[in-house]
Design a protein around this nucleic acid. Structure first.
Lengths: 180, 180
DNA sequence: GGCATCATGTAAAAAGTTACATGATTTA
DNA sequence: TAAATCATGTAACTTTTTACATGATGCC
């Protein structure tokens, strides 16, 4: 379901686009909340067309297929946003590592936690770059000017949160082991 | 891979257990970082045994199979914790909704954001209850006393972060639409 | 002509979800 | 003895990942 919804949203904001375009845009925007490669996107677009959520316009150069959202598609997207309460469940390798880290010796645990902090820092840099790129283009007062913006903000806050948590956890491990 | 690792960790801390026990413990502890039902756990335990990571002890009452971690299993877990840097990618329906929410009218967006805050609040309550239950049993100075504790702390912080973000986003939507 | 990139797909495998199925034991 | 819960599994389906496959167009 979620992949459909992400595609409907992207297509709504971008206007009629090809699968290739959507795959590119996916990478550069939705990717920090949902991931999908072209091998998942192409078949899904076909299914969505079969289900009446999308329509294929004229085939462009090089056999490009230009998809656009039908009224049924618009309704589907609206319904999901308004009626569907999203599951709060997370599935995160980082969280799993943080769960298991007490199985290691204190010095090893500290190494692992430091690595997590470093990778959070790198992730933060990416998100902030994304935000800078967004701010350079989008007009926040425009029709869909805030599309993606709240999610980016959330991502940045969460990532900063991971960094703070890592610092505090490192300090805790050191205090407990008397290595401080 | 991650399911294996979660099972290895749980089995290390619990000591020899049956699939049924592990499924129960999964629900009550690892579940907030990784989810799996018994229909995924039973076959995975069988595969892990075939791969030499687990050993089956005597079959207990009612045909219970008691699994324990082999040295190979211990090594596998250690290796994953020490050498594997986890992907930072998130896949979250909540984040996807937050991404798409600007497609709605301001008042609708506010409704959706409020619902997210409410569900974060409920989730926070669950996590805090889990922590209370943990604190009542576990000795934080014991061998694996902090098993799961850092992850719980992270989850609680992240969930509080979502609540703050929701408040700020609601305020932002209202300010932009002049509904404040 | 060769290389990059545009553009679309399929196939196979792994992971995850939901539903079905069955039998043993405890407790009320 | 009926209901709850213990205990294990399989089957069907959906979703995701990784790899394979192919042809067109533009640029050097």
């Amino acid at each position: 379901m979620s992949l459909r919804i992400a595609l409907l949203g992207l297509l709504t904001v971008s206007g009629p686009s090809s699968g290739y375009d959507l795959a590119k845009k996916f990478e550069k925007s939705v990717a920090h909340v949902w991931q999908a490669g072209h091998s998942q996107i192409y078949p899904e677009l076909a299914k969505m067309t079969a289900d009446g959520l999308l329509a294929v316009g004229a085939e462009g150069a090089r056999g490009r297929k230009i998809y656009s959202v039908t009224p049924d598609g618009q309704a589907e997207l609206r319904r999901w946003l308004l009626d569907h309460s999203p599951s709060t469940t997370t599935r995160s390798e980082t969280a799993l590592q943080s769960f298991l880290v007490p199985l290691l010796e204190p010095d090893e645990a500290v190494t692992v936690l430091r690595r997590m902090k470093t990778s959070a820092q790198a992730h933060l840099a990416e998100l902030e770059e994304l935000r800078a790129a967004r701010n350079a283009i989008a007009d926040p007062a425009g029709r869909w000017g805030m599309f993606g913006a709240y999610a980016l903000d959330l991502g940045i806050r969460q990532t900063r949160g991971v960094m703070e948590w890592a610092d505090d956890s490192i300090a805790d491990v050191e205090r407990r082991s008397g290595t401080a």
